[in-house]
Structure formats: structure tokens, C-alpha cells
Simulated assay, not measured.
Amino acid sequence: MTSALEKYYATNYTKCNLEYNFLASWKGVAYPSHAIQVISLPFQILAFYVIIFKTPVAMKNVRTPLLVNHFFCAFLDLTLCTLSTVYFFLPMYGTFFVGVLSWFGVPNTFQILLVWLMVLLTVGSYLYFFEGRSSILVQNKFRITRQKTRVIYYFLFLIPWMSSILYVVKFIPEDQDAAKQFALTLHPCPTREFFTFDVMIFLADSILIEGFIWIFPIFGIYSASFILFQVTTLIYYICIAPSITISKDTHHRQKVFLFSILLQCFIPLTLVLCPVFLVFSAHLAGLYYQTMVNLTVCSAGLHGLAESIAIVTVHRPYRKAVSQMATEFKRRRRAVQVLPFLANHMRHSVTMRQSF
């Protein structure tokens, strides 16, 4: 901490009426996130197992997109909960990390790029999942059949993501001490972590902040439009204008699978988008609570857990496979418990015979 920050901490900051709040501290985002990862890991492994080994023949054409989507969802969960757990100061646009990579001294800039990359790949995997499913439908007039067209399509999808990260990285202030002084004019009473951790301010200009506030939702809507378009075409060509060449049974299975994948994706995305929307709306309204931001980060860490549980529950073949695995586990457990009883019974019988 520089002399200017030390002076502010010793004088101005003492006037802030801040009481210790576990959820607002670094522990309030680090400990729950790490616990979420421990709980999520078995479910993520289970989801990998059923996708790879229990996918029926009827779902073979969607196994790869489903596996890719689950892989990046799980890796995003690993990044947010373990590798680069984020502590974010929203009104000050500053951050530091309390994950494993910080223990090894990995710079904040690299961790920001890592988190951004994983968010990009995860969102892209949802697009790949729905686009792959949509392109299978022969009756779909908008399906992508040429590899060159697909490359252009995904490049257009990536433009705002690449532009936004370049926007942030380019304007990261070199003089972080001056940036922190500017940040304190935006929010004079941050949590003590602002002074005790290596916080990096990545936007320290009112005009740049104002631009980012409006660019971020515009880019979000732009990216979401790609996924929503694929979802819309799926709903239209399966539920409204299905192919007349397929059987009723095939059409029914398509509708069931469509409902399953929509539910599978809707559940985890809700855990992320709703808290982010609430925090962003509160920020625009001039309200800010560090507890709210930390809970949003923890909620984002639940995305992988919810996605894994959704996979093994909403799809009937996977649900049936998990049920059979649970039944087999209970059967073997009972068998293991019975073996000592039988052994004791046999020893007792032998002892009784010898006594006679």
C-alpha cells in the first residue's frame, strides 16, 4: 500500500461506518466457492460418465455437442471456484483473486483473461450445442451445411467478445496507485480488502466506464441473439412445422429431447443470469452492496453443479442409467453387509458341532 493509500486508510477510511461482514469479505466468496467445487466434482464426473458410456444410439448424434458443452461448463466451474475465484469491486471496476493460481503468484491480468476465455468458451459451447442440433434437421432452411459458412458464423459470434476484452486490456491503467485514488472517488468506503490485497483497477476513466456500462449489455444481447435464433428454429421446425417424412414416434422423441435440452440449459443459466441482472440493475440505480456481488460470484459457481444435475435428471436414458447404477450400488452394499454375518454364522455353527 502506497503512502497516499495509507494516508487515506488512516484518515478518511476511519470515517466509514463499516462493520465486519463475512459474506462481504474475501472469505465470503472464497470458502463457499471452494465448497461448491468439492460438492460439484462428483456430479460432474457422473455426468461425464453417463454421456460417454450411457448415451443410447438414438442420441449418438448429439453426444459430442453435449460432451463439449459439459466439459466447458465444468471447466468454468473449476476456474471460478478453484483456480481464479473472483473478488470484484463493481462501482470501482477493480478485482483481485483468491483462488489457487493466486497462491502461486499468477498475475491478475492473466487470471482476468483466463476467466474471460472460459466464459467465452462456455457460451460458445451452448451455441455449438444448439446449432449442431438445429443443423441435423433436414427441413431446417437455416441449417449450416458448409464448413466455411460455419467458420464465418462463429467468427461473427466472437467479435463482441474479442472486442470487449481488448477494450478492457488496452485501457488497464499503468499507474495503479492513481487508478485506486480515482476508484475511491467513485466508492469512498470499500471493504478492507481494497487496501490489504493486490487489487487491480482495470477502468479508471469516467468516459470509459460509461462506455463499458452500455457496451456490455449490448454485446450480451448480440451474443444471446445467436443462441436464441438456433433455439427458435428448433422450436419452429420440431413443434410448429415438423417434417412430414418422419414417423410420429420420431417426432415425439424429437419434442421430448427438445424440451429436455431446453430445461437442461435453462436451469444453470438462470442461476447465473438472474443474479448478474439484479446486481447490474442495482448498480445502474446507484445501489451497491459487496455482499450482493460476492453472492453473485458464488451463484455463478453453482452453474456447473446445476448443469451436471440437469444432465442426469432431465434426459430419460441418463436418468434410467443413474437409477440402475444406484440400485446396483445398494445391492452390492447389502451383499457386503451380509457377508460378515454369514461368516460369523458359519464359524458359530462349526464351533457348536465341535463342542458336540
Rank of each mutant, 00 (worst) to 15 (best):
S3Y: 09
L5K: 05
T14I: 08
K15F: 06
L18M: 10
Y20H: 11
L23M: 14
G28A: 03
V29H: 02
F43H: 02
A58I: 15
A58N: 13
V68Q: 14
H70R: 05
F72H: 07
D77R: 04
S84L: 07
F89A: 01
L90C: 09
P91Y: 02
V100M: 10
W103L: 14
V106S: 05
V106Q: 07
N108Q: 11
F110A: 15
V119G: 07
T122R: 07
Y128L: 15
F130E: 03
F130S: 01
E131P: 04
K148Q: 09
F157T: 00
S163W: 08
S164D: 13
I165D: 03
K170F: 15
Q176K: 03
Q181D: 04
F182R: 01
C189G: 05
F194G: 01
F195E: 02
D198K: 10
V199G: 00
M200A: 02
I201W: 00
I201F: 00
I201R: 00
F202R: 00
E210A: 14
I213V: 12
I215F: 13
A224M: 08
L228V: 15
A241L: 13
S243T: 05
T245N: 09
T245P: 03
I246R: 02
L262H: 07
C274W: 15
S281D: 12
A285Y: 13
M292K: 10
M292V: 14
N294L: 03
C298M: 06
L302C: 10
A306E: 00
A306K: 02
E307W: 11
H315P: 05
T327I: 12
T327P: 02
E328R: 15
A335W: 06
L342Q: 10
T351Y: 10
R353K: 14
